[in-house]
Design a protein around this nucleic acid. Structure first.
Lengths: 185, 185
DNA sequence: CCCAGATGTCTTAGCGCTGAGATACATTGC
DNA sequence: GCAATGTATCTCAGCGCTAAGACATCTGGG
């Protein structure tokens, strides 16, 4: 397997033999693969009139408890983007009638974002295609390789401080108001 | 050890038990990990007055044959961004005196981009920090795990570099344009 | 030689994100 | 009560990228 990253490693070995660039074998491939995967997923989103950012929000709402509503702060934590990005995502989705915003009853600063019927229909229609695309992207791996990959990536995520919010350390306060995590799965 | 992606999987199992969302265990973690890694690498770049895009170009030039020069088209293929992005990256680097552009002697359409002395100094100074950061990001893995990870990611990259769409269900709009261009031969 | 299509570079409009900060409300300690 | 601090949302300028396309130049088949 002489892929692009192997070439890069070979070039560095000549140009900078003093450096141990072996970490690039992992990080470089991770980076390139992520780009390719993103580009491929985007095609599915586009086919359903969506983009990754919109899909992320709709999917996060969809998998939360009925009536599929969360606050912008929760969406922000789930998607790893800034609050400004969430505001703008919601502006776009609201303008299309896919989500609604209403004032929170319990917190005067906050807003409740809910899936509309149209939003739910759209995400429910796009989801099967999305997971099919993901499955196709992984088709080259055996089930054992897939599991091993998921495990190793999980190890790395944990080591980098990715916390699960409602599990692990068990330090959750009563209402545990940190449901949906992660975006673009 | 339940990370965010495990929670997402558990939520989907409740909300959409009809779907097999297991591919998300890999793709979701890949996506999140890539975000975290990018954010971490950016700190090293910033410490050297660079960003990921500039580092990418300088490093690509640095590891090419002396006199460390390539054409924009070659840089484009290596970095997986569009030609417009390369033009703008080069504009920025040229304005800082880190690269130079001169007309190609052999092809009237083309341009030769070369590292300047300042550009070479900067990338040579940033590189050790960069690989050290990468090594630190992987510190949680054993050498065996790192090798296995690199191998599996390589398998995926190759499978996507060759397939690049036009497979799977026929319902999708099957325009296998580009999207999965890898810099390999 | 000439033309049609391929290729290389650059241009521009538009998009989504970040980072900094404004504003309003909530919570805590005293 | 009230000030100090924390939290939630939104605003906005700036940035880098993409998509589409404008040109110029190259290449190969009549």
């Amino acid at each position: 397997m002489a892929d692009h990253v192997d070439q890069v490693l070979a070039q560095w070995a000549v140009r900078r033999p003093d450096l141990d660039v072996s970490p690039m074998a992992v990080i470089g491939r991770l980076s390139r693969l992520s780009r390719l995967v993103d580009a491929e997923l985007r095609r599915t989103f586009t086919a359903h009139g969506l983009d990754a950012a919109s899909f992320d929000v709709l999917a996060t709402l969809r998998r939360s408890d009925p009536p599929h509503s969360l606050t912008p702060a929760e969406l922000m934590r789930s998607s790893m983007v800034t609050s400004g990005a969430i505001t703008q995502r919601l502006d776009r989705l609201e303008a299309r009638g896919l989500v609604s915003r209403s004032p929170s009853a319990s917190d005067g600063r906050s807003v409740v974002v809910a899936l509309t019927g149209a939003g739910r229909d759209l995400i429910d229609e796009a989801l099967p295609d999305h997971v099919a695309t993901e499955a196709r992207l992984l088709a080259a791996l055996t089930e054992g390789e897939r599991d091993a990959l998921a495990t190793v990536l999980g190890t790395l995520l944990e080591s980098l401080g990715e916390q699960s919010g409602t599990s692990g350390k068990g330090e959750q306060g009563g209402k545990g108001e940190q449901s949906a995590k992660d975006g673009k799965a």
